[in-house]
């Protein structure tokens, strides 16, 4: 799978969260949050991870940077996260927390909520400086210079270093989050919903900033979002996730132009499109839809609970083309038309 240009090669990643119950507490069941996910990330590439809330996309990001265990020590993670570093290959998933520290500087995260992911009692400068203190042997003066340089890079003024997060707007805070992630010269940035909390006009600024920085520093991005239009804009390749599985993967332009998996189709069809004639499409559907009884379809609009995932293809309960044998076994990802699709029946 991996070419010389691959920087990250995730193989058969599984994440299970135990669920406890009973009079004497014991593991009674588990949530299989990530179910055999494999993906590759090239140098300088951006891959997009999309899906509805609860599909496991955030867990994939956290498993890659190996922070699931510190967050919940009973979590069960299997599979390999191969990081190609200076000609060597390291399996990040097998690293303990101590040895993982060596690689933390190379993999950084940017989070969704710029309000809660910054420490309210630390100045912005101190926060950006912190990873430098941990991961480098720079002197205080060098670190200060680096902080000023980083603030300038993300479009803030060096004088902002002495301010606290509450003095910034949402967009500025996300710039601070990006500066903090950049501090240690990472190779890979995992951005989990980085612009979802921002206003439209500010969102575009931050997206552009992230792209500029990627160019300048040769970063590889894993961009996790439920916003399909933003993901399309930034990503080279897309991975569509549903209940812990990747159901379709391939070049972004291909998938957006012609989604193959029924779930990708459903997801893309649901995205509203801005434009003068957008209204018509829905009106046409509307005329067809009302039932004589005056009763709307009872819609199964719920994602099934990850606690009792449907057997076989997990999407079959919402799938318009589901067949009886879809319940038998989970369809594997199969190469077709320059992409991978986990559905044998789609056309």
């Amino acid at each position: 799978m991996s070419s010389p240009d691959t920087i990250l090669d995730v193989q058969d990643l599984n994440v299970r969260f135990p669920v406890f119950g009973g009079i004497i507490p014991r593991k009674t069941s588990e949530v299989h949050a990530v179910d055999g996910v494999s993906l590759t990330l090239g140098r300088g590439e951006t891959i997009g991870l999309v899906g509805e809330s609860g599909c496991g996309k955030t867990t994939v990001g956290r498993a890659i940077v190996n922070i699931l265990r510190p967050m919940n020590y009973r979590v069960d993670v299997t599979g390999r996260v191969l990081y190609h570093r200076n000609g060597q290959v390291v399996d990040l998933a097998s690293q303990g927390q101590a040895s993982m520290r060596r690689y933390r500087a190379d993999l950084q995260m940017v989070f969704q909520d710029p309000y809660s992911s910054l420490n309210p009692r630390m100045t912005v400068g101190a926060m950006i400086e912190e990873p430098l203190t941990i991961h480098t042997s720079q002197s205080k003066a060098e670190r200060r210079d680096r902080v000023r340089w980083l603030l300038d890079k993300v479009g803030l003024s060096p004088s902002h270093a002495s301010r606290f997060p509450h003095e910034f707007s949402g967009g500025q805070r996300q710039r601070v989050g990006i500066a903090r992630a950049l501090a240690t010269n990472p190779k890979i940035v995992i951005a989990d919903e980085p612009v979802s909390a921002l206003d439209v006009s500010v969102q575009a600024q931050v997206v552009n900033l992230m792209q500029d920085i990627q160019q300048e520093f040769g970063l590889s991005y894993i961009f996790i979002s439920h916003d399909l239009s933003v993901v399309r804009h930034v990503s080279d390749r897309i991975f569509v996730m549903y209940l812990g599985n990747i159901v379709e993967a391939g070049p972004a332009d291909e998938i957006y132009r012609r989604p193959a998996h029924p779930y990708s189709q459903m997801l893309l069809a649901a995205v509203p499109r801005p434009g003068p004639d957008a209204r018509r499409t829905r009106r046409v559907r509307l005329r067809e839809e009302p039932e004589p009884s005056g009763v709307a379809h009872p819609v199964v609009d719920d994602l099934p609970s990850p606690l009792n995932k449907p057997s076989g293809c997990a999407f079959r309960t919402r799938c318009p083309i589901a067949r009886p044998d879809c319940a038998d076994s989970a369809p594997p990802l199969v190469e077709r038309d320059g992409r991978q699709v986990a559905c044998p029946y789609t056309t």
Binding site: S201, A204, V207, H233, V271, R273
Partner: peptide, 10 residues
């Protein structure tokens, strides 16, 4: 400033 899901990618 809106990214699009259809048409040409900016």
């Amino acid at each position: 400033s809106l990214p699009r899901v259809d048409g040409e990618r900016a």
